[in-house]
């Protein structure tokens, strides 16, 4: 039966968190049941106050094959980090 149920990705917002965080995936017959399953699987220990469920096939993802063209070019561009500024001593919180 599982093979007929689509996969959903589950995101939980913690009690004091500002953003939803991906916690795992599960199978469910539809969106509403996915939320119920997520409640039962991922919020049993007081973890969350809000749940998002998204069908996994609705997520566009980069693939491992694209890793080099996507991410390698940023590896040698240290000038993209703002680390070359002189910070005056009397400027706090930086």
């Amino acid at each position: 039966m599982s093979k007929d149920w689509p996969l959903f990705e589950i995101f939980i917002r913690g009690r004091r968190g500002l953003n939803h965080v991906h916690v795992g995936s599960l199978r469910a017959p539809d969106e509403q049941m996915a939320l119920m399953h997520a409640r039962d699987l991922y919020t049993r220990r007081n973890e969350g106050v809000s749940i998002w469920a998204v069908r996994s096939d609705a997520i566009a993802a980069s693939t491992p094959d694209e890793k080099d063209p996507y991410f390698a070019p940023s590896g040698d561009k240290v000038y993209r980090h703002p680390t070359f500024y002189q910070i005056p001593d009397d400027v706090p919180h930086i």
Partner: peptide, 26 residues
């Protein structure tokens, strides 16, 4: 945000001690 363990980031900013949710707090 801590990407090493998804659950840890759920409790970020929770300095009051409730962060140890895994042991049954709150």
């Amino acid at each position: 945000m801590n990407d090493d363990h998804v659950y840890l980031s759920l409790t970020e900013g929770d300095a009051g001690g409730d962060a140890r949710w895994a042991f049954g707090t709150g």
